[in-house]
């Protein structure tokens, strides 16, 4: 028996994606343990190190300008890693992922929703940092630089979302926050997001290109520095990281299917 089934209008399909994203955003906005660290830490650190203690130079740029780029990167990483890594791990463990997959949810709606949510948070962080930079640190950039920095922040979500997704498919919900922090914080430091690499030991700056966060940081720094040096290579690295993580996460999800829960 084959059943004839009425087609599902494209507009209705679009509505699924929009609602999924809207409710994911609302849900996380109501979760203080997500909102407070991801939104406040980048601004707090920038205020402290870029504005109050600022004045020194990093990589040829004033600290307030250098750290505007790197704390922006730090913030983007945070929302993407936590927004994917922790939420996916929890949803997997609590059976919500299985329920969503069994329901007629359009494919990719969950991924789309989480990406949109992380981008909205990244945009907010970028605007908060820009506000502090202009009002308190006298940073002046050309309009195209502001715009490009904003775009880099929003699109910068994608590679770290992929890394977060990979983490989320591997670790338990309980372990996920710790695992994410163990990757997030050291990686930020080692990529020169907290302090310019020029102030860190040579061995650390030599190793920095290993970290995906280094490449996003360098792109943001190229924007505030007004040059385009090496940007293509950094983008290439991030694209490669994104593809590899999505692929590994997809394989892991298929494997989980085969193991099942009994």
């Amino acid at each position: 028996m084959t059943t004839t089934i009425a087609p599902f209008p494209a507009m209705r399909l679009l509505r699924c994606y929009v609602l999924e994203a809207r409710f994911e955003l609302l849900r996380l906005m109501r979760t203080p343990s997500f909102v407070l660290p991801t939104l406040l830490f980048p601004s707090m650190f920038y205020l402290l190190f870029g504005v109050i203690l600022g004045g020194s130079k990093g990589g040829g740029l004033p600290a307030s300008r250098y750290l505007l780029a790197t704390y922006g990167t730090f913030g983007v990483m945070g929302v993407a890693l936590f927004g994917f890594g922790v939420t996916i791990a929890l949803e997997r463990e609590r059976g919500l992922l299985a329920l969503k997959r069994a329901l007629p949810m359009p494919p990719g709606a969950l991924l789309f929703a989480k990406t949109a949510m992380a981008m909205a948070f990244a945009a907010t962080i970028s605007l908060m940092l820009a506000t502090i930079a202009v009002s308190l640190a006298d940073v002046s950039l050309a309009p195209w630089q502001w715009l490009l920095l904003f775009v880099v922040s929003v699109l910068g979500v994608i590679p770290f979302a992929a890394i977060g997704l990979l983490i989320g498919t591997w670790v338990s919900g309980q372990a996920a926050p710790a695992v994410v922090n163990l990757i997030y914080l050291p990686m930020s430091f080692l990529s020169g997001l907290w302090l310019p690499l020029s102030m860190l030991p040579d061995s650390i700056s030599a190793m920095a290109p290993v970290w995906p966060s280094y490449h996003l940081g360098q792109i943001a720094l190229a924007v505030v520095g007004g040059h385009g040096e090496g940007v293509a290579a950094h983008v290439g690295m991030l694209v490669a990281v994104t593809a590899a993580c999505y692929l590994l996460a997809a394989r892991r999800l298929i494997h989980l299917d085969q193991v099942g829960s009994g």
């Binding site: 699924c16 609602l19 999924e20 409710f23 609302l26 849900r27 109501r30 329920l99 949810m105």
Partner: peptide
């Protein structure tokens, strides 16, 4: 479907859960 093991997102409102799930159907 109603799966015994599925824990729905606690921070979502009932109306949101319903509206979202309804949107999946024709």
């Amino acid at each position: 479907l109603m799966l015994q093991s599925a824990d729905l997102p606690g921070a979502s409102k009932v109306r949101e859960l319903l509206e979202l799930t309804r949107s999946y159907y024709a």
